[in-house]
Nucleic acid binder design. Structure first.
Lengths: 345, 345
DNA sequence: TTGAAAGCGGTACCAG
DNA sequence: CTGGTACCGCTTTCAA
């Protein structure tokens, strides 16, 4: 159980050199003779020396790691996002530290602080559905930590943002439902404070208004934890079903809510789309396997992760202290399948 | 953009104390007077001091972080595992650094090295489907890094292991298929080198033998990358369909393969389970939503992550240098649904 | 072209 | 009870 790690001092001693020289030789400094460079490098390789990143970080104030804050990993959307992020961090030598808020504002704040204490060079953040204020984030930012927000963003803190065109996606989906012949369309969506909720509601209402369709108040149901626990989705669905005039179609506004609602309809043996149509945001890989196949709006999750990571690393590595923040908006894709098709008659 | 970080030295200077005293006061050393403790702590809190973890790590040779190596995050099984791990690391103050092998042995080895260089205190490892040798892992281990393997483990390196009872799960599932009346049963499974592949094949064959059923060679198809790319699953399925006497039922041996095969059957408009039944290992949250609802073997992924993390942290924090390694075997659960039910006639 | 020494932020040993 | 000091491993002036 001996740590076989070899240090610069060891090399220096072995080669009768100073640690300074060794350090420079390893970093290919122009002021070191070829001869010594060769010597040092050979010795280093042979004894498979590798620099202690902690020491380097301490010295340089750069940890070559970035922190990620999301609500939950077991969620197709975020899992794909992580994949996208990793594709960038891997090739640029950063490590990724993942934390989950589990949709809790308090836990979110704690994670942000912990990541800061860990000396991450920057953070990628998607807010929890409970989050009403971002003071911790602001504190961290003004302490000099670069931040990029994605998906669930807050305008209360100025950062780069990577989002999808939620309004347009919701608009397209709603339009599709209307054009399929549905007139009573409800929405089950996430917490009202979230940016994505606002935008998806906006697109939803815009499309309805364009077709002179009204939206009774109770037709919009909120899941305050984004469908994280099944109960809230169940409750929302039941509310809709209990209405004197229940909807004919439901627009579900997030991954978990979509799956949860779909499952709820199944459980009740409600005929889809005959009695109730359903369509929504969903990043599950194979919605065509469902019964019936599920109409979805798909988000380019991998690309979002990639874009966010690129922006962040740009921020970290560029000296110019970012005046003006970029808001990158990616398109969504609508896949029409059977769950939203009005049956003849 | 000023880093507002305050250090122990700053406090010492401000309070006219030595840094040693401050350090001890903050750690509640018994040899510091209550008065100074109060003073120091108050000042620290007021200026929201927090220790520089990098410095602490450098000094103590403990980074309070652990590395995770899995093949892919966007995979229900691994995503849930991460969740389980995080439930432990979060409460015990460890941070989790995630890396993906993408089923590549080379990338796996590199990730292991990188994590080592990062000075992680320990590693949680699930091998890639390409992995035939574990020398990098052995090197790291003999350098003193505690390791816990889970799910896809290798006996070529002695560590704690957390796995499910793959043989039994496969046995139960196969028995169910046989008892449903199927006699020609095929298996699409992962790379032959993987532990899970061997064990799942063993359970499969045992059940068949018990019922005097034969298994022609081509009835076992391997996806060398665990179904990571759709092509290999497609290929395996096509091989089975092209046989002069194709199977009546397919046992799919992993998450991705199950979804991929199911999708392949769908695409071909093959009647499930009439023309071809299917059942397999799958951790998707709602297999009952599929058409037809999918018979699955579910693994306790969250519990596996939890157990693995507990074992690892135990290893890290206990001084006793682990004699004897534990092999923790968790049970699987069989959920019988329609995709594996033989239709009358 | 190389070396001595200070320092990144903490911790811990040894004195006093 | 408190202070001085060396050190973790590496980088970086400043001198030689």
């Amino acid at each position: 159980m001996k740590r076989d790690t070899i240090t610069i001092t060891d090399i220096a001693r072995a080669l009768q050199l100073s640690s300074a020289t060794v350090s420079r030789a390893l970093r290919d400094s122009y002021q070191i003779s070829e001869a010594t460079k060769q010597l040092v490098k050979a010795y280093a390789k042979q004894h498979n020396y590798h620099p202690n990143l902690l020491a380097q970080s301490l010295k340089s104030n750069k940890s070559k790691s970035i922190g990620l804050l999301i609500s939950s990993v077991p969620n197709n959307f975020f899992a794909e996002v992580i994949n996208g992020i990793e594709s960038i961090t891997y090739s640029s030598g950063y490590h990724l530290i993942i934390t989950q808020s589990h949709e809790s504002q308090e836990r979110e704040a704690r994670n942000i602080e912990h990541l800061h204490w860990r000396s991450v060079d920057g953070m990628l953040v998607s807010l929890s559905s409970e989050t009403t204020e971002v003071s911790t984030l602001q504190k961290i930012q003004s302490a000099g930590v670069p931040i990029v927000q994605f998906d669930r963003v807050s305008d209360d803190i100025a950062t780069h943002q990577v989002i999808v065109d939620n309004k347009d996606g919701a608009y397209q989906l709603t339009k599709h439902l209307v054009q399929s012949g549905f007139t009573r369309i409800a929405q089950i969506t996430s917490a009202p404070v979230l940016s994505i909720t606002r935008e998806r509601k906006e697109g939803f209402l815009t499309a309805l208004n364009e077709h002179y369709l009204s939206t009774p108040e109770p037709y919009i149901q909120h899941c305050l934890h984004g469908g994280m626990n099944l109960e809230e989705t169940e409750h929302a669905l039941q509310q809709l079903l209990d209405l004197p005039e229940p909807p004919e179609a439901i627009f579900t506004a997030s991954d978990r809510i979509t799956i949860g609602t779909f499952a709820g309809l199944h459980k009740r043996n409600i005929n889809i789309p005959g009695t109730m149509a359903i369509a929504g945001f969903c990043n599950f890989s194979s919605p065509e396997l469902f019964h019936p196949s599920l109409t979805t709006i798909r988000q380019p999750a991998f690309e979002m992760g990639k874009a966010a990571a690129e922006l962040l690393i740009g921020l970290i590595e560029s000296k110019k202290n970012s005046r003006g923040f970029e808001k990158r908006v990616l398109p969504t894709e609508l896949f029409i399948r059977q769950s939203s098709v009005k049956l003849p008659g």
